[in-house]
């Protein structure tokens, strides 16, 4: 109770802090892109832009529902395993002669069902989402291996797999950019322009108040997990076709990158705060930074360290900023201020 009360008390401070972080991360991203285009050799070519979009597509797609879930104060660490399991399922179905047009929507449904399992444990049983999704992270990946085992299914039709890596006509714009933009727009609309969005923010910033306001918090979270699973299923289809290879280890470890990108984009891990444009900037920044470092022949060890550090900094920096601002404000006013919360 007191945590909730404390959080509410700091709302004003939080909002301004994160609003700044959003803008900051967008500015940083733009500045970095300009820097990379001008000073990293080969970064600015249109082909590299295509590569970059293809590379960040799965991260961006998974980050959309992840943002909504984290804003409600929960987390879904099983997304990458869901991608792996749907990819395995796709391979098994393809091998048994199911037409691709049936497989693809089925994969989205499978993903949704896997998400519903997460949602059930989190909402119906009230279990901590961290523990549940660490469990299903292992479970879904394990099942992916049980399904497909040691084989890779690779004989998907060339027409489909070349669409996923192709570009629109003669332009360097990748085909996948279109659904990416559409989905990002949809999620942004849901979060920022629809009543559901406000309910999502409300359940994340003050669960008790949200429940009193008549928001069906549990139901809302359940359907967010279903959505997350469905999008992971879609990514499973994309991943399989893009690499024309259905394998149990597809997207292994990607959940960490997704969470890192979302937090980098200014979403609070405690819930209640965050914007989708910020997250998009976070995804672009993370991916283009890795792309540029690779082009500059920085070793993969350094990339590992950079990803980890960015994750920590993305939470640490706003905390420190907030504290500095708090100190400044206190000095400026020297009047009574509420004691800082733990």
């Amino acid at each position: 109770m007191s945590v909730e009360a404390g959080r509410q008390g700091r709302d004003g401070l939080h909002l301004s802090r994160f609003a700044t972080w959003d803008v900051a991360i967008i500015v940083v991203t733009v500045v970095f892109l300009i820097f990379a285009v001008t000073s990293v050799q080969h970064f600015g070519t249109s082909q590299n832009a295509t590569f970059l979009v293809l590379e960040l597509a799965p991260i961006l797609l998974l980050a959309l529902p992840m943002t909504l879930i984290i804003v409600t104060g929960e987390i879904d660490l099983s997304v990458a395993s869901t991608v792996g399991l749907t990819s395995s399922a796709m391979g098994v179905m393809w091998n048994s002669g199911v037409p691709l047009e049936t497989i693809m929507p089925l994969c989205v449904v499978i993903g949704a069902v896997l998400g519903a399992v997460n949602g059930f444990f989190v909402t119906a049983l009230g279990l901590p989402s961290l523990a549940v999704t660490i469990g299903t992270l292992a479970l879904y990946r394990g099942l992916a291996f049980v399904l497909l085992g040691d084989t890779a299914v690779a004989d998907f039709p060339r027409s489909h797999s070349s669409w996923t890596i192709g570009t629109i006509g003669e332009t360097p714009i990748p085909n996948v950019l279109v659904p990416m933009i559409v989905l990002a727009g949809l999620f942004a609309a849901v979060l920022h322009a629809m009543p559901v969005g406000r309910a999502i923010f409300a359940s994340g910033s003050n669960r008790v108040a949200a429940a009193f306001a008549g928001i069906p918090v549990a139901k809302l979270k359940f359907w967010l997990y279903v959505t997350s699973g469905a999008v992971a299923g879609l990514v499973g289809v994309f991943w399989t076709l893009r690499f024309s290879s259905a394998r149990a280890d597809n997207a292994h470890g990607l959940e960490l990158t997704v969470v890192a990108a979302v937090l980098l984009g200014g979403v609070s891990i405690f819930g209640g705060k965050g914007t989708l444009p910020g997250v998009l900037a976070g995804v672009v920044l993370l991916s283009s930074l890795q792309n540029a470092l690779r082009l500059a022949n920085v070793s993969s060890e350094a990339l590992t360290v950079v990803t980890g550090s960015l994750l920590i900094i993305s939470v640490l920096a706003p905390n420190i900023l907030g504290r500095v601002r708090g100190v400044l404000r206190r000095r400026l006013r020297r009047t009574h201020v509420p004691a800082p919360n733990p």
Binding site: L183, P195, V196, R198, A199, A202, N206, I215, L220, F222
Partner: peptide
């Protein structure tokens, strides 16, 4: 108060799933 301003808004929790 976020709570009060939300009170009158009909919320469909399944709306995001419609995307799926």
């Amino acid at each position: 108060s976020i709570g009060r301003s939300l009170q009158r808004i009909p919320v469909h929790p399944a709306a995001p799933a419609a995307i799926g």
